[in-house]
Amino acid sequence: MTEYKLVVVGAGGVGKSALTIQLIQNHFVDEYDPTIEDSYRKQVVIDGETCLLDILDTAGQEEYSAMRDQYMRTGEGFLCVFAINNTKSFEDIHHYREQIKRVKDSEDVPMVLVGNKCDLPSRTVDTKQAQDLARSYGIPFIETSAKTRQGVDDAFYTLVREIRKHKEKMSKDGKKKKKKSKTKCVIM
């Protein structure tokens, strides 16, 4: 069974824990209790493949930012979460993405942009803004509501699919490099 290491990042209060708990335990946590770091595991079937999701729910508070490099190193894919009623959390996505790329030393890291709290009427981040940002990053965008469960499975499952595509691409690139290195030079 394939294991996928997913990391949920975003500013404090955007609903990272609520999304994760909704996926794992099928219930909505409405009281806000700032996370330092929590880890969850769940076995699911995605596109006919049974897999184990190892999900790291991270601290959004700035005082825990020193811990970010460590979990970013171990993560295979990242859910970059903002709240649709919090423009600052949307603007912060850029910083999370840049930090992930720096730590992973790669421009090509599996990510999904997630606009959470889409059940709320007080939207300050337009869907088109988020779609445009995701398009500019070359990553999928999904709106979710941890409260109603809308888009929750889709967000995590899409990230797994992005990781699969990335692994497939990397193995193809690896095979191309191996083929090239088999060419021999004969000096007579």
Rank of each mutant, 00 (worst) to 15 (best):
R135F: 04
K176Y: 08
Q131T: 11
A134D: 01
K165L: 07
D126I: 04
Q129S: 10
L133S: 05
V125G: 10
D153F: 02
A146I: 00
K175G: 13
M170W: 11
K165R: 11
K175S: 13
K178L: 05
R135H: 12
S181E: 14
T183L: 01
A130F: 15
M188T: 15
H166V: 08
A155R: 00
E162F: 01
V152R: 01
D126L: 08
D153I: 10
Q129M: 13
Q129F: 04
A134E: 04
L159M: 02
T127R: 07
D132Q: 08
H166Y: 12
V160I: 12
C185G: 15
V152F: 04
K169S: 12
Y137C: 10
D154L: 10
Y157N: 15
R135K: 14
T127N: 11
F141G: 01
E168R: 09
Y157V: 14
K172V: 14
K177I: 12
A155I: 07
Q129L: 11
D154H: 09
Y137E: 03
A130C: 11
S145G: 05
K182W: 01
H166F: 12
K178P: 15
V125A: 14
V125D: 05
Y157R: 12
K177L: 15
Q129N: 15
H166Q: 09
H166N: 12
R164G: 05
L133G: 03
I142P: 00
K128P: 09
D153L: 07
A155W: 00
H166R: 11
Q150V: 11
K167H: 13
L133R: 03
Q129V: 06
D154G: 07
V160F: 04
A134G: 08
D153H: 04
Q131L: 11
L133I: 09
D132M: 08
Q129A: 12
G138W: 00
D126F: 10
V160D: 01
K176G: 13
Q131A: 13
K167W: 02
D154Q: 13
K128I: 10
R164Y: 03
F156V: 14
D132H: 08
L159R: 00
D132F: 03
G174V: 08
S136E: 15
Q131I: 08
G151S: 05
V152K: 01
K172E: 05
Q150N: 13
H166C: 05
Y137G: 03
G138R: 04
A155Y: 00
S145E: 05
D132V: 04
Y157S: 15
K172T: 15
V160L: 03
D132P: 02
F156T: 04
K167V: 03
K169C: 13
I139G: 01
E162H: 09
K165A: 09
K167M: 08
K178H: 11
E162M: 06
A155G: 05
K176L: 12
Y157D: 13
D126P: 04
A130N: 03
Y157I: 14
A146F: 00
I142G: 03
H166G: 09
D154N: 11
K128Q: 14
V160W: 02
T127W: 09
T158F: 09
Q131W: 06
L159T: 01
K184E: 15
K128T: 11
T158R: 06
H166S: 10
D153G: 06
R149F: 03
M188V: 08
L133N: 03
T127H: 11
A130I: 14
R135Q: 13
I139Y: 13
K177G: 14
D154F: 05
Y137M: 11
D153E: 15
L159N: 00
S145D: 14
L133T: 03
Y157T: 14
D154V: 05
Q131G: 09
Y157A: 14
Q129G: 13
V160M: 02
E162P: 00
D153M: 10
V160G: 02
D132C: 05
K178R: 07
F156H: 04
M188P: 15
R135W: 04
G138D: 06
A155K: 00
V125R: 03
K165C: 01
T183F: 00
D173T: 08
D126W: 04
V152D: 02
Y137I: 13
E162D: 02
A134L: 02
K178G: 15
V152A: 05
F156S: 01
S136R: 09
M188G: 15
C185W: 01
K175C: 06
A155Q: 00
D153R: 03
V152W: 06
K178N: 15
R164L: 03
I187V: 15
Y137L: 15
H166L: 11
Y157P: 02
V160R: 02
S136L: 08
E162I: 02
